[in-house]
Nucleic acid binder design. Structure first.
Lengths: 222, 222
DNA sequence: TGTGTTGTCAAACACTTGTTCGCATTGTCC
DNA sequence: GGACAATGCGAACAAGTGTTTGACAACACA
């Protein structure tokens, strides 16, 4: 293929890929024999040798003697460099706000941002910078008619204003919600996109716009 | 039984807590004897009994016979945090298939891939490798009731089979489409999720499954 | 041609570990 | 007290699994 490395390079990658896949699928390490079955290798000793190599390479951590004890290591050096070269220009990292703590202006500073989302900046209409947006997880079905389902992740551009018919993230009485903004008899309301819910008055002191929804990610298809 | 918190209730919590702690610290399941040491119980059979109970309660998943094979279940916070924790190290690049060229098995080689999508591998159920999936842009509104809108980007895991009720990308007569797979009178059909469309027979020579939809991105919110 | 290296396999071995069984202790209820 | 369940212990067993060893084929190199 790419030079002197032939079969072996292929096998070791197969082993590694399978280990990664298995751990992601099963939430636990495969056994050597599992890897045999998954990688096409027929001898446990071959797999064993590759695991040792992968451990030496630092790609996995491998505890001798223990059963199902392979741990994936962070590929921080190699892969990240490769990635960020391509990515940096076009990928931005957004904090995922899991919980909206009551009353606190969480959005000014990322008070809670262990979780991050990576998105393609250029996909977003009027591209974003990292500190101009955040991600919010949807709870409930009040927006299903807009194609926004329970469990979806919304990319929200921080802004304190919006236009008519925009879908926005807002704070009402310290509770975060996602709805469509609009007016009724001249007064602002938030409209669910689900017949089962009624419009919510959106005026007064405790109403605040967090931002406009500009993107959506979904990873639970059902 | 409900109110009596005696030794047993205490022990089972100790076992559970230790399992959680161990998995977080070591990134792998403890063995029964590890739990003995960590929970204060002195007999493997006691631990074994509690593990069985915890499994029945649905708090852990426990695969009989396998070593170090305890999996933590749906503790929504834990799991979600865990997931997103390793997002950072887990970005993959998928080709975006804009056009489905007639009859050609485009998926084998990425014939058309100017556009790439970057996604968080660990968000996907049963995480993907780069060559195991592709991205497809949705045209039309035949799936709106499933929350899939015109212009959405679908992440499709390549596979040639699927299960009942899966949403899949398929090829019919050289035309790509996304529908829900199911059966009608024992025969396979593709079901649009939109009352305006009728189910499509999905058998015969010119029908082929491209893959299963495992994720969705949307960047036009309206 | 001979030698060494690499990749793989098969089999055997030894240890880790899940599982089961019988028994002791404690507490509850009749 | 006697029956019974709940809890826990310890030991023994059996199965899963990591590790080692030796052998064979393919290939490179001198």
């Amino acid at each position: 293929m790419s030079g002197t490395t032939s079969k072996s390079a292929k096998s070791i990658e197969k082993v590694y890929d399978f280990v990664v896949k298995y751990i992601h699928e099963n939430a636990m390490s495969p056994s050597v024999r599992d890897i045999c079955a998954g990688s096409g290798l027929k001898s446990t000793s071959s797999v064993h040798a590759y695991l040792k190599k992968l451990d030496e390479m630092g790609r996995i951590e491998y505890r001798p003697g223990l059963r199902r004890a392979i741990i994936l290591k962070n590929q921080d050096q190699d892969t990240d460099e490769d990635r960020t070269e391509d990515i940096n220009t076009d990928i931005i990292k957004l904090p995922c706000i899991g919980k909206i703590t009551a009353g606190v202006p969480i959005l000014a500073h990322e008070t809670y941002s262990d979780d991050f989302f990576y998105i393609n900046r250029s996909m977003i209409d009027g591209a974003l910078n990292e500190d101009e947006a955040f991600v919010l997880k949807v709870k409930g079905d009040s927006m299903i008619d807009a194609g926004i389902l329970d469990g979806d992740y919304l990319i929200v551009r921080k802004q304190s204003f919006c236009e008519d018919r925009d879908i926005i993230a807002a704070l009402i009485e310290d509770e975060a919600t996602v709805k469509r903004y609009g007016k009724l008899n001249g007064k602002p309301y938030l409209f669910p996109e689900n017949e089962a819910y009624a419009p919510i008055p959106f005026f007064g002191e405790n109403c605040r716009i967090l931002g406009k929804v500009v993107g959506l990610h979904r990873y639970k298809i059902s």
